[in-house]
Simulated assay, not measured.
Amino acid sequence: MTAAGLHLPTAGEESHFPPTPGDFWQPLFAIPGTEYYFTRPMLLMAIATGLLMVALFVTTRRAAIVPGKGQWLTEQVYNFARNGIARDMIGSKDFMPFVPFLFSLFVFILLNNVFGIIPPFQNPTMARIGFPIGLTLIVYVVYHWVGLRKAGGVGRYIGGMLPAGLPGWIKPFILFLELITFFITRPLTLALRLFGNMFAGHMLLVVFIVGGWYLFKTFEPGLMLVALPAWILGALLTVFEALIQFLQAYVFTLLAASYIGGALADEH
């Protein structure tokens, strides 16, 4: 298994480059009695969940006024999600009930993203479209449930999507566009943005790291020389990818908070 989560063939094995779709199918074992498989991304997701549970428990079980290093780090991340995301996007009046959800969402996505550059994982789970879709569905249910509860009914909730003061003849067209935005465009772009960035970054690392290996193993001096700058660029891209991984976790959580804040706005 390489930095990209792909198998590098050894001597005597047939090799191919660039990777094929089959290289991304990574089943570990079949689930007994079913046609389904437990895959490597599923394992990484389970590991991320376990690591977060243990880390949060260990750093907060003996919380003190003067925090230790672990407690201090957890508090910094929590305060970032609380003040920099929840309060800023939802408002100081209504934000507190949503802080645990947004904090959990942020750290969960961030850790799974960072798996893309941490050995021996080196495979971002959010580069599998099913996982961003699952998180998006949770956000989708939350902000629509909040909006419906705030409005007091489906009719009022949908009616609140229309800006005040519109001429009657244009309201059906604007409502149609708003329904597409709230029920289709928002969840679609939220999931695809996270997936696309994680998948694209993963592929860049594949190209330069695995590609460099294929050049090196030709044992031709000219190609072996080209492998070195490919690996150097791969290392630089790894640092850049770490920034993208943080930003994508932040953007996803920020947009989730924005949608919740919009659902709680007075016009709803």
Score class of each variant (00 low, 15 high):
1 M>Y: 06
4 A>T: 09
9 P>H: 11
11 A>H: 12
12 G>W: 04
17 F>D: 09
23 D>F: 06
24 F>D: 11
25 W>F: 10
25 W>N: 10
34 T>E: 07
40 R>W: 02
40 R>E: 07
43 L>P: 01
45 M>T: 12
46 A>N: 04
47 I>N: 04
47 I>C: 09
54 V>W: 01
54 V>Q: 06
58 V>G: 07
60 T>R: 15
60 T>N: 14
60 T>M: 06
62 R>V: 08
65 I>D: 13
65 I>K: 02
71 Q>A: 05
73 L>M: 06
73 L>K: 07
75 E>M: 04
77 V>F: 04
80 F>R: 01
81 A>I: 05
86 A>K: 05
88 D>N: 13
91 G>M: 10
92 S>F: 01
95 F>S: 10
97 P>K: 13
98 F>I: 03
98 F>Q: 08
102 L>N: 11
103 F>S: 05
104 S>F: 12
104 S>A: 15
105 L>D: 12
106 F>V: 07
113 N>I: 00
113 N>F: 00
114 V>G: 13
114 V>T: 11
114 V>A: 14
116 G>K: 11
124 P>Q: 15
125 T>E: 13
128 R>W: 08
129 I>T: 10
130 G>Q: 15
132 P>H: 10
132 P>V: 13
136 T>N: 14
138 I>H: 03
141 V>T: 14
148 L>Y: 09
151 A>T: 03
151 A>S: 09
152 G>V: 04
154 V>S: 03
155 G>A: 14
157 Y>I: 01
158 I>L: 13
159 G>D: 06
162 L>C: 02
162 L>N: 04
164 A>E: 11
165 G>Q: 05
166 L>H: 05
168 G>H: 05
172 P>L: 09
172 P>I: 09
173 F>M: 10
175 L>A: 05
176 F>W: 02
177 L>V: 08
178 E>I: 00
179 L>S: 06
179 L>Y: 01
183 F>K: 08
183 F>T: 08
187 P>W: 09
188 L>T: 15
189 T>S: 13
192 L>V: 14
193 R>E: 03
195 F>K: 02
196 G>R: 04
198 M>W: 00
200 A>Q: 08
201 G>P: 00
203 M>P: 00
204 L>G: 08
205 L>S: 04
206 V>W: 04
208 F>P: 02
213 W>T: 12
213 W>M: 12
215 L>N: 05
216 F>M: 13
216 F>R: 10
217 K>V: 07
219 F>T: 11
220 E>F: 03
222 G>A: 15
222 G>V: 11
223 L>A: 10
227 A>Y: 07
233 L>A: 11
236 L>A: 12
236 L>P: 00
240 F>K: 10
241 E>V: 02
242 A>N: 03
245 Q>D: 15
245 Q>P: 01
247 L>T: 08
249 A>R: 00
251 V>D: 15
253 T>S: 11
254 L>G: 06
255 L>A: 11
260 I>F: 03
262 G>M: 08
264 L>Q: 08
